[in-house]
Amino acid sequence: MKNKSIRHALGGTALAALAFGAGAQDVQIYGIADVYVGSVRGSSTKTVVDDGGNAASRLGFRGREDLGGGHAAYFALEMGMLVDVGTTAVSSGFGRQAFVGYRAPWGSLEAGRQYTPLFFNLLATVPFGMNVNWAPVQMSTSMDGQPAAVRALGFPLRQSNLLRYRYGGGPNAKGLNVDVVAAPGEDATNSGDMVGFGASYRGDHFFIGYAGQRIDSGTAAVTKFRNEIQGVNGSYTLGAWTISGAHLVSDSSLPGGRRAAHTVLGLAHDAGPHRWMLEANRRDLKGSPNDALAIALGYDHRLSKRTALYGRLLHLSNRGTASNALAQAVVNAGSGDDVRAVALGVRHNF
Results as ranks from 00 to 15, higher is better:
Gly63Ile: 04
Gly70Tyr: 10
Trp241Ser: 07
Ser57Ala: 12
Gly256Pro: 01
Asn324Ile: 14
Gly169Glu: 05
Asn172Leu: 14
Val90Gly: 00
Asp66Arg: 00
His8Phe: 13
Gln28Arg: 10
Gly93Ala: 12
His262Ser: 06
Ser57Phe: 03
Ser335Ala: 09
Gln97Pro: 04
Val35Met: 13
Asp34Asn: 11
Arg306Leu: 13
Pro273Glu: 10
Phe155Ile: 01
Tyr310Pro: 07
Trp241Asn: 08
Arg41Thr: 15
Ala14Cys: 02
Ala325Met: 11
Thr45Asp: 08
Gly311Ala: 15
Met277Ala: 07
Arg347Met: 14
Thr237His: 11
Gly31His: 07
Gly196Phe: 05
Ile32Cys: 03
Ser44Gln: 12
Gly218Trp: 07
Arg259Cys: 00
Ser252Ala: 09
Thr321Ile: 09
Glu78Trp: 05
Ser200Lys: 03
Thr47Leu: 08
Glu110Tyr: 06
Tyr74Asp: 04
Thr88Ser: 07
Ala16Gly: 11
Asp291Ile: 02
Ser142Pro: 00
Asn161Met: 11
Arg347Ile: 15
Ile243Tyr: 09
Glu65Phe: 07
Gly145Arg: 01
Tyr36Ala: 10
Pro273Trp: 14
Arg319Asn: 06
Gly218Ala: 12
Gln328Ser: 13
Arg258Gln: 11
Pro127Gly: 12
Gly53Ser: 04
Arg113Ile: 14
Ile295Phe: 04
Ile215Arg: 03
